[in-house]
Structures are given as C-alpha cells and as structure tokens.
C-alpha cells in the first residue's frame, strides 16, 4: 500500500456530487408516478445503486484511496449478491 499524501477534494466537488445525488433522488420520486410496470422497481433500484456508488466513490473516497479498498468493497458486494441469488433459487422455484 502506498502512503502518498492524501488527496484533498475541494468544497466545490463535494457540492457538485451533492447536487447529483439530490437530482437522482428527484428522478426516482418522479419515476414512481409513471406507469412502467415491472420496470419501476428495476429503475428505482438502479438509481439507488448509482447513488450508492457515487457516495462510495466520492464521499467515501474510494476513488482516491489505495486500490485495496476498492477491491475489498467490490468483493464484499459480489459475495452478497451471490448470496441473494442463491437464496432466491429457493423462493423462485418453490
């Protein structure tokens, strides 16, 4: 792991990220009033995941930290996703 000088994010970049997040929240609320069938849930979850990714990458500094952190986060989320899929092998086919 490299111990370089920490990256300093500017105030402006934080405000920009915040604006993106609030916009996405607005979109996800707006989209519920539109009839899209099953796609509504998918869209809501995709927007939520995008927001989560933005928080992880910018606010939680994954973009600027050592890559070991990115690797671990990806791994944990992947394992969790696999667990959900395997659990649903039961419920989808019961």
């Amino acid at each position: 792991m490299s111990e370089l000088k920490p990256h300093i994010s500017s105030y402006g970049s934080h405000l920009f990220v915040l604006a993106c997040l609030i916009t996405l929240t607005g979109i996800t609320v707006a989209i519920t009033s539109v009839q899209l069938g099953a796609f509504n849930t998918t869209a809501a979850m995709m927007i939520a995941s995008t927001k989560a990714a933005i928080v992880l990458i910018y606010f939680m500094h994954l973009k600027f930290d050592d890559k070991i952190f990115r690797f671990m986060v990806t791994l944990v989320l992947a394992i969790y996703a696999i667990v959900i899929v395997i659990t649903f092998f039961d419920y989808l086919y019961r």
Partner: peptide, 12 residues
C-alpha cells in the same frame, strides 16, 4: 426448500 435450491446446494 425448492427442488432447484436442493441440487444447487448439493453441487456447491
């Protein structure tokens, strides 16, 4: 559990 889940778990 469902049949599918059983063979999946058995395989794993």
């Amino acid at each position: 559990m469902s049949e599918t889940a059983r063979w999946v778990f058995s395989l794993l």
